[in-house]
């Protein structure tokens, strides 16, 4: 006689995309100034999504509310389906100004998130060492931040965010304080990081080229108040060399397209 097996797995699952972060009706007032107005956004797991928009349109505000560092005036953020009430271990932040502790060595800075979780020193240093190597800073473990260049400091900030093994990396203009060459190197690193790490990146930038170059999806924000004006999924070939990609028609057209949209706000 044949046993009756539970057949739950056969029930049809609705083809609902797996959104790791959902933003629902999010608004933010600073006093009477409306910085963001009714933002609704989905961030699919494993994608690199850029928030792009003119200065002051509320990109940082939005990112910090996702991080749980700022309280929204209305609406909510869901991470893995749960409402955000504050920072959490499934999100890690990369700061525009690096936010490294100047009194601590590189390795202590990188291990800081783990230190706060109470992980023993030997263990957290081992993990930190691995990520320091991953961002290309092996050999600099015992240096202090003021002994590093801006680009190296941001790598420390990145390693610190990677070390806590969060699912979502929130990056606020991480490359804006470094020179153009370093910036391009960073963009390559970010792309290869995205290939090896199964993480979701939410990436703030005000460079159209950068957004188009690295993103799976670009959220265009408009200003006063900040709202979502468009969502673009650039269809860029990823198999060429950086130079080939930057000369690709579709890459250039996407940039042109976004520019045309943004011009309306500049005027």
């Amino acid at each position: 006689m044949q046993a009756v097996l539970p057949r739950a797995w056969e029930t049809p699952v609705p083809a609902k995309p797996d959104n790791i972060v959902e933003v629902r009706g999010l608004s933010k007032f600073y006093g009477s100034f409306e910085a963001l107005k009714e933002i609704d956004l989905d961030f699919p797991r494993g994608e690199l999504i850029s928030l792009l928009g003119p200065s002051g349109c509320g990109k940082t505000t939005l990112l910090k509310m996702i991080a749980g560092l700022l309280q929204p005036t209305a609406g909510q953020v869901l991470v893995k389906g749960k409402p955000v009430t504050g920072p959490g271990p499934e999100r890690a932040f990369v700061f525009q100004d690096f936010a490294l502790m100047p009194w601590a060595t590189v390795i202590r800075n990188v291990a800081f998130g783990l230190e706060l979780r109470g992980m023993p020193k030997a263990q957290r240093h081992e993990i930190a060492r691995r990520y320091i190597a991953e961002v290309g800073l092996a050999g600099f473990e015992e240096r202090y931040p003021h002994e590093l260049s801006g680009g190296m400091r941001q790598r420390v900030g990145l390693a610190r965010a990677l070390a806590v093994d969060a699912d979502v990396l929130l990056m606020d203009e991480p490359f804006s304080a470094v020179d153009e060459q370093t910036r391009r190197k960073f963009q390559e690193d970010l792309l290869s990081l995205r290939r090896v790490q199964r993480k979701t990146f939410i990436f703030v930038t005000h460079s159209i080229e950068e957004a188009v170059y690295v993103s799976d999806r670009i959220v265009l924000l408009s200003r006063r108040p900040g709202r979502v004006s468009r969502i673009i999924e650039p269809d860029i070939p990823r198999d060429g060399t950086p130079d080939e990609i930057r000369r690709d028609r579709r890459y250039l057209d996407t940039i042109e397209d976004i520019w045309d949209g943004l011009k309306r706000f500049v005027d």
Binding site: A67, G68, L69, G86, P87, G88, P89, R91, A92, F93, F95, D97, A99, M101, F112, G113, E115, L116, R117, R160, V164
Partner: peptide, 19 residues
Amino acid sequence: SLVEMSKSFGAKPRDVYLK
């Protein structure tokens, strides 16, 4: 920024003061 950083990595008020 440093206080915010520590909070984003889960610092409790005590950590914010002491660390």
